[in-house]
Design a binder for these strands. Structure first.
Lengths: 236, 236
DNA sequence: TTTCGGAATTTTGGATACATTATGCCCGGC
DNA sequence: GCCGGGCATAATGTATCCAAAATTCCGAAA
């Protein structure tokens, strides 16, 4: 038994981890979900009051979020939610394509046959879900596809994996509704199919190219959703 | 006059910025310079006592360093200096090559003629310094070359630029002595020459390839230095 | 009416005191 | 001699207090 498990029972009473950790996750989740308006201010005291905790953990959470770029300092008046920037979105997707393309090229040489088989199974399920219009299930399958695909990467190249996960997180800001169109879901699954094929062929160059265009498609979807939202906002 | 300039005089009395900032830089500098032994523990109280400050800013500095990977949590006993990892070093250089190669491909299309001229001037100076064996001057020219080259990138693609700077910082851990061999300096300057040539040709593909191999050379130098150090350590 | 200066307020930065938790050692029992 | 429980210790986690800094707003003078 590991030493820290000794008091596991007591610790499980509290939701999870420290107040700082919880505060951080709370703010992060809301930020990524777009629950705060752009340029809205977040002060330590306000957050602390809302959560009923002291300023100390809130402070540390906010500083961590600043390092991640999810909030920006507002010159002596706390932090501010950064405004959406199409230019930044394009840049983030560009970097993502670069990193994930490279990651896949790496995986092409080392991935296990059994993993490929599992990936194929996941695609099959996603395909069926797509046909029946169950977009939530497609989303879940895609997530598991992603996790499985990158689990090996995490072991082989932890830094690259970490960077990719960071990029994915940042990008979430620009995809506020996880609601995907049916065509988008179809395209995504088709992209995964091609990728697994390239992977099974062990073609590094092809893997890289396919992953890049897969990311580019995701970017276009995000862009379309974004434009739709703007139209909606203008109507209001 | 901006409001914060009103007390500029008073603020200039203190070294620079907040205690947190200074603590952060202090630790960071020592960490990068290899002043702490691998696996050495760093506790909040110890650092706070050393610097004669309270735990609060030290804490925040340590957390920031943790996010950068310069220290790692030591399970309830503060932080620890991570042990060198050749695998991590390889990975970091690999990512650097990827990012910097892409960055240069981007610059190939947009860099100003005048900037190229400046870069050529810098190379010329570095070349002479190389011939006269003034390695410190070579280092300085290289640094200015780098800054100038990437100043435009910082404006066009701030995120990519930030990532590259991060990578360069991480990698510094593995190049503890800035002492470079004369051959290394020569190779570096020659690499820069080729890069500027490709840049003036506007050949994106060539830029990317040259930058990648430039980074690969830097990695090999770092590796060689590392091995030398290990030999020295074994003799002791 | 406009502008400049300063006081009040808001908010962060830093220090300290207290609570909590993990670790490691020591001692007793098997 | 080895294993296990418990206590001492050391370190982090959290809250609160005080200080410093920046913004805002108000009032007085030009």
């Amino acid at each position: 038994m590991r030493p820290q498990d000794k008091h596991a029972k007591r610790r499980r009473v509290r939701p999870a981890g420290s107040v700082r950790e919880r505060t951080y996750r709370y703010l992060r989740e809301r930020l990524l979900a777009g629950r705060y308006a752009p340029k809205e201010r977040l002060t330590e005291v306000a957050v602390a009051r809302t959560l009923g905790v002291s300023r100390t953990p809130v402070r540390e959470a906010l500083h961590k979020l600043e390092l991640e770029g999810l909030v920006e300092p507002a010159g002596g008046r706390g932090f501010r939610v950064p405004a959406d920037s199409p230019a930044e979105m394009r840049e983030l997707f560009e970097i993502r394509g670069l990193l994930e393309g490279h990651a896949l090229a790496c995986l092409a040489g080392s991935i296990e046959r059994s993993v490929i088989a599992e990936l194929e199974g996941l695609i099959e399920r996603a395909d069926e879900a797509c046909n029946s219009g169950n977009l939530d299930l497609v989303f879940e399958c895609n997530t598991r596809f992603h996790d499985l695909l990158y689990s090996q990467l995490a072991a082989e190249r932890p830094r690259l994996h970490g960077l990719i996960e960071d990029m994915r997180d940042y990008v979430v800001r620009y995809r506020k509704n996880t609601l995907i169109t049916k065509e988008g879901a179809r395209r995504s699954v088709e992209g995964h199919k091609k990728i697994v094929l390239a992977l099974s062929l062990g073609d590094r160059r092809l893997c890289e190219q396919l992953m890049r265009s897969h990311v580019r498609e995701a970017q276009q979807d995000a862009l379309a959703i974004r434009q739709d939202q703007q139209l909606i906002n203008e109507r209001k």
